[in-house]
Structure formats: structure tokens, C-alpha cells
Design a protein around this nucleic acid. Sequence first.
DNA 1: GTTACTAGTATCGAGTCGATATTATATTTA
DNA 2: TAAATATAATATCGACTCGATACTAGTAAC
Lengths: 183, 183
Amino acid sequence: MKMNDKRRIKELIERLDRITAADEWGDDINPTQWTALSYLSRANSFSRSPSHVADFMTTTRGTVSQTLKALARKGLITEIRSEHDKRSISYSITEKGEKLFKKESTIEEAALQLGGEEVSTLLAGLEALARTALKQRGYKSFGVCDTCSYHRKEAEGGYCNLLNLPLSPPQTKQICHEHTSAK
Amino acid sequence: MKMNDKRRIKELIERLDRITAADEWGDDINPTQWTALSYLSRANSFSRSPSHVADFMTTTRGTVSQTLKALARKGLITEIRSEHDKRSISYSITEKGEKLFKKESTIEEAALQLGGEEVSTLLAGLEALARTALKQRGYKSFGVCDTCSYHRKEAEGGYCNLLNLPLSPPQTKQICHEHTSAK
DNA sequence: GTTACTAGTATCGAGTCGATATTATATTTA
DNA sequence: TAAATATAATATCGACTCGATACTAGTAAC
């Protein structure tokens, strides 16, 4: 690998993120809140607590707690307290929150201009980079059930061998905090 | 392109950025300040004003102004007022600021684990994505002189046909706000 | 020589962020 | 089973980001 390649990769990721972050301001929401909201819209019901969001966002529970309170204040999510563990909370996205997922980000628009080959090699590279980075830091993968080693494919949907639960077709595409990469 | 590919690309870039941002806290510096400092260390002397940093970072002059003041307060950069335009300022990195560029980021460490082929296709993809995104939004490229259409290669270093200036070998590798992609 | 325009800032309010401390609930263990 | 420990979520703090707005001081254009 050329000496500066790794630095250039880091720089490009940072710059691209800042470019999209810039147009995630407005709509009464900021980039961090946007990331949390987006996570909540795609995570399954076992993965929507403040702790899970914090792990996904690589930040602390305290910080995420404030972010989620801000989103709740704006009516974009609602908190649901757990029955069997009175400490824990699960957040759910509201209709109003769902409506925000219309506009496309700069990165997404730019991706549309790339060729199919280019997109798939880029995606493969990013996946590999993320996989390695997560492993190095001991972070959880937060992949979708579909691709988990505990997942068993069924005629309709699937089955989770960890939680012993049947999964509907849409549920197999949701993010789970227990996700473990299928080898 | 598969429907979700573009969304996945955006998600991965965001997540990777948050992972590196997480370990850019500490050392009395935060991720935003880190980006500004890093830019100043690589930009040529015509590209180190608050306005240039703001353009590079896709933010406003006001925000950058504060960030640079914070860095100056910490003794990591120093401001140099221009002679012929008394409004403008150019920042310069100090010895103390230079010393911070030791540790490697998570993304860089992860990149080292990838194969050479993987790195070059990832890099090519990111470059293409960035080029397209910048063009769509009308942002400046901030490339290095080396790759500029105004650049003329010489036996020793190069020459800038825009500013009519000879460039030393290290200068040809610096970031310039006037950079225009060579076709 | 007035009228733009430009470079940089101060200030504001909402919010991020890590650190720390606190509350309430669960789990372990003695 | 009671006491020690662990866990989930928050409140609070101080430094800072961020866009918006308003402002100052130089420079350029007409």
C-alpha cells in the first residue's frame, strides 16, 4: 500500500461525511439527531434502547440520552417503558418522524452518478474497512438479521436461534444489536 | 444499482466517520478542531484563511472563526495578518500543533489490514464519489497542486500558471483552494 | 467619494460531547 | 434474605459546534 493511501481514505470519508452533514441541518433536526432517528427506523424492537443507540453511534449513554430526549420533544419518537425490566426503555419512531425520510442526501445523489461496477467495488471496500475497524475496536456490528450466524432462513421469513423467535420477512431486514457475522 | 446500495454507502461513511471521531476526542482537542488543524498542516500559504478552512469543511466562516480561535488559544496555530490586505489572516501550525500528528486513526489502522487491490479500488471509488458530490454542490475540490490544470511540471518542482509562481517539490504536494482538476 | 463588496468576528440559542454523579431497578452472593 | 454489586437511564457541568444574524473594518467599483 502506498504510504499516503490510508490517510487519503480517512480524509475522503471525513470530507464526504461533512458534506452530507451540511445538508442535514434544517428541518428542525441536526446530523446527530438524524443518525439516531435513522437508526431507530431500521432497528428491531430489541435494539432501540438508549444504550443500543449509544453503541451504534460510538458515543456515551449520557450523550445519546439527551439526543433522544430532544427527538421526543419534537414528537419524532416516543418512549416505551419495558414491562419486565422497569429500568429499560425502547424508543419508537412516530408518523411525523417517518415522514422526514423523503429527501435524498448528497452522497446518495452522487452514488447514482457512478457506474454499477464502481458502486459494487466501493461498497465492498467500505464493508471490509468497517468490518476490520469494528473488530479492532471491539465494537458490535449491528448488521441485519438476514446476515447473522444465529439466523435460520425459513419458507416465510426466518428464525432467530439466539432469542428463539420467529421472524417475519420485514424483521429479517432489521438491524439487531446481537448481530454476529455469519462466517 | 441495487435500491439500497446508495443508502448503505451513506450509512457506512457515517459510521466510519463516527468511529474515528470517537478516538479523536482527548489530547485537549476535538474532531472538528482536528480536521481544521490537519487541513492547515497540508494547505499552502494562499489557502490558510478562515474562509478557506470554512469552504473546505463545508461550514460557515463564523463557525470556523471560533474553531480557529480555540486552536490558537491552545497554542496549536498562530495567526499572521496579511500585509497588503489588512482584512485577511493566514494561520500557521506551530511546533506544538505539529507534534499531535503522531497517532494513527482507527480508519488508517483498519486500512492497513486490507489487501493492496482492495485499497486501490476503495480509494478510486471514494475519489469518484467525492468528485461527483463536490461538483453537484458546486464546492471547490481542494486538491494538491500536482494534480491541478494550472500546474506545469518542471525539472525541480513545478510552476503555477494561475498565480505565476515557481513551486518547490514539497509545495507541489500541498492543498490549494484554487485547485482545478486537470482534465 | 459614496456605494458596494469582502474578510473576519461577536453573540445567540439549541445541541453535541465526555465526565461525573445520581436514581432506580436487577442480579449476585454471602 | 439481606447486603453488595451491577446495570439502565438521567441530570448536570464546561467546552465546544453550528447556523443565523448583526456588526466592524478594510477594499474595490463606479
